[in-house]
Amino acid sequence: MARTSSRDRMKNEINAGSMADIAFLLLIFFLVTTTIDIDKGITVKLPPWSDEAPEITRLATRNVFSVLVNAQDQLLVRGELAKIEELRERAKEFIVNPQKREDLAERPTKAIISLKNDRGTSYKRYVEVYNELKAAYNELWDEECQRMYGIPYDEDLPLAYRRAIKEKIPFVLSEAEPTAFGEEN
């Protein structure tokens, strides 16, 4: 009798009912530990380093949009104090120059934005300023893209389209060596 009953038990399968619970436990562990942090940021391209002093090129003042950020995080745009809220619009106006003004860029291809900061400028401020300048270009590219192809500009656009747009409105941002003001201790 005992033998048959043990054989009966052999026939039984392992109870898989708790498998789901175990899997749930593991699942919850991984759910909690997972941090899907998407790495995002402002992409920039640095100029290559050269030991020789750069050639001094004379640029017409009208083609240069100079932005200075000092150690107190104040902005000086083309020689006058400015607020960050107006930076984007001013940069856009400077680049396209819709009214063909004498003191703004001749053509978008000739426009140069020059950014200079102190060593004491906070990084937050720097990123804000850089973001606004980049935003100005992004908005211009978007407008140009709408005009040329009737679709909004984004990074998934075919390379040829993006090249054509960037040829019309190239992103030229030159960064000067920072001045040594306000270095923290």
């Binding site: 640095l46 100029p47 102190d118």
Partner: peptide, 27 residues
Amino acid sequence: GDVTMGIVSDVKTSLRKAGQLKLNYSA
């Protein structure tokens, strides 16, 4: 965000000297 640009500039210069020019300011 509260770090000043001094140390960031040093890092940028070092990256340029090393030929690493593609950069991403994480935000």
